[in-house]
Design a protein around this nucleic acid. Structure first.
Lengths: 149, 149
DNA sequence: TTTACTGCAAAGGGTTTGCATGAGG
DNA sequence: CCTCATGCAAACCCTTTGCAGTAAA
């Protein structure tokens, strides 16, 4: 998603398009690592040294209500998601990294259809997280088990 | 799950079994509404008037590490889940109620199998939330749309 | 008896709010 | 030009921590 599309989406919701908002939106939308508020802050600070966290929070709120991103609450702080299509997030319990799974999209979409058709709940959006060990941390754990200290 | 099973599970993890812990565990496990810390506090306070939130937080931490419950972070505060089997949570964006869906368990289980077999991620547990309007709030919204103020 | 838990109070830290200045439309 | 957004600081509130007394095993 480029600046023009983001601008159009924001205008549609009647909110002003500022350079700060565009920078924050791009930082989230053009990322795949589900960044936290702090991470977004650090990535935008280069271009806007005077920006504060209050602007980040305010803008993320606008972006969510404009349908561009979704907040993903985690125990310590929230992360932000730009992939609103049905998919699976893989959350590593060791390193904390969050990635989109490359498989499972179709089944999540079918699950969404099932909930919509077989229950009286009107689905708007979904969050599917699988928690466990990413390949890197799983390999490290394997080594520790083979050669304990 | 009754007190004896909870006691056995806690002993297995080498933690002491106190009346407070049993009461908190039962308040979460024998509930279906995914209670918050405050709600658990209110439900246990009748039997333990001197209990403080610190004990609730400490005990929920123990229960989670003992594999009895799971924390579900939400934007304002966490809720707690006792159904660790693959299933779908329905989160109402209007009233905030969280319920377990009566359908979709099998598909979540199949999704879990797919992730385990077709990716290098080692799944430990999952959280599947569908956000939208529960039947009550959907009906209310329908009425508002038909007869706007 | 030993060790860990409870209860109380204070601190911590991510998030929100109020307000004056400044910029978008 | 009017309204809304930004930036700064302070407040908020959920959660965590430290410690003395107390109960589990």
């Amino acid at each position: 998603m480029n600046q023009q599309e983001i601008t159009a989406q924001l205008r549609e919701w009647g909110v002003r398009v500022t350079p700060q908002r565009l920078a924050i939106a791009e930082a989230v939308i053009n990322s795949t690592d589900h960044p936290s508020v702090q991470q977004i802050f650090e990535r935008v600070r280069d271009h806007f040294p005077s920006m504060t966290l209050a602007t980040i929070y305010s803008t993320l709120d606008v972006l969510e209500r404009s349908g561009l991103i979704q907040e993903l609450p985690f125990p310590q702080y929230s992360r932000y998601e730009s992939n609103l299509e049905p998919h699976v997030n893989l959350v590593c319990v060791k390193c904390g990294n969050v990635t989109d799974a490359t498989v499972g999209q179709e089944m999540v979409a079918r699950l969404k259809s099932q909930i919509s058709s077989e229950s009286s709940f009107q689905v708007a959006w979904q969050r599917v997280d699988f928690h466990g060990w990413c390949s890197t941390c799983a390999a490290a754990r394997e080594r520790e088990n083979l050669s304990p200290v």
